[in-house]
């Protein structure tokens, strides 16, 4: 695939799928304020996805609604981390923490992309992601240093989630071209920055960051290989849209 399309699909699909998952916290949060916070982040992520699908449309791909609501799982390029069910709050919080740290650094780097339309979107998106990271850090620090129960849950969630989080940085065949053309700094460089960034926050808690080199990353998502959870998510998302594909909803 053309390196620009390859990169944009990965970015957009991550945002759409995690935004969708975050929205599932409506009515289920541990306190009302968290229902509201997860909804805000979901709305931001949907907005980011829409901007990125719009860039794809400008490059000749289908309309954003068509791209988002009519593809099947093998055509999606999100990492598997984003598609896992929301589980309990500890998992959703740790996923949000691990993903958004990478996302903020990613969009900070993309603000300098050689593809100017993407750089423009990134300059706006990174400003919003700053708040997502602030939210994640606040809660991870708080729960990661509170009761034994909370620390135990957070540590278990961290250990479960990390292999999936390493899958964020899975590369595709387009990676050398992406780096060479200055589209993006590349996944390896991003991962190095991310490790430093999450390490700094976790060091302020009672949580322990395992040695990442001992973990096996869960990849596949970038190549269209997904967990059993993605297709049902997509079926649900398109349930109404597909009732009448000719309709304007």
């Amino acid at each position: 695939m053309n390196p620009t399309l390859d990169l944009l699909y990965r970015l957009a699909d991550d945002q759409l799928i995690l935004g969708h998952r975050n929205s599932e916290w409506n009515g289920l949060g541990p306190i009302l304020e968290e229902d509201i916070a997860f909804s805000s982040m979901a709305q931001d992520k949907l907005g980011h996805a829409l901007q990125l699908y719009t860039l794809l449309h400008e490059l000749g791909e289908a309309e954003p609604d068509t791209v988002a609501f009519t593809r099947n799982a093998p055509q999606f390029h999100c990492c598997q981390l984003t598609e896992l069910p929301i589980g309990e709050y500890d998992f959703s919080l740790i996923r949000h923490f691990l993903f958004d740290h990478a996302e903020l650094l990613r969009f900070e780097a993309l603000a300098g992309s050689s593809y100017e339309p993407l750089a423009q979107v990134a300059r706006k998106v990174k400003g919003e992601l700053k708040y997502h990271v602030l939210h994640a850090n606040t809660w991870v620090k708080r729960l990661g240093s509170a009761t034994e129960e909370a620390i135990g849950r957070m540590q278990a969630a961290l250990e479960f989630t990390l292999p999936y989080a390493l899958g964020i940085f899975e590369t595709t065949d387009a990676e050398p071209d992406i780096i060479r053309s200055g589209l993006f700094i590349g996944e390896a460089e991003l991962q190095a920055r991310w490790e430093a960034s999450i390490g700094k926050v976790l060091a302020q808690t009672a949580l322990t960051l395992p040695d990442l080199r001992t973990l096996t990353p869960v990849g596949g998502g970038r190549r269209g290989q997904h967990t059993e959870y993605l297709q049902p998510l997509l079926d649900e998302m398109a349930e109404v849209f597909r009732l009448d594909p000719t309709a304007d909803w």
């Binding site: 708080r142 240093s145 009761t147 129960e149 909370a150």
Partner: peptide, 15 residues
């Protein structure tokens, strides 16, 4: 499901 979070928030030692 959220009770553990609220218990943690009430923990005085919480940073």
């Amino acid at each position: 499901n959220g009770a553990w979070v609220r218990r943690a928030l009430l923990q005085p030692q919480a940073r």
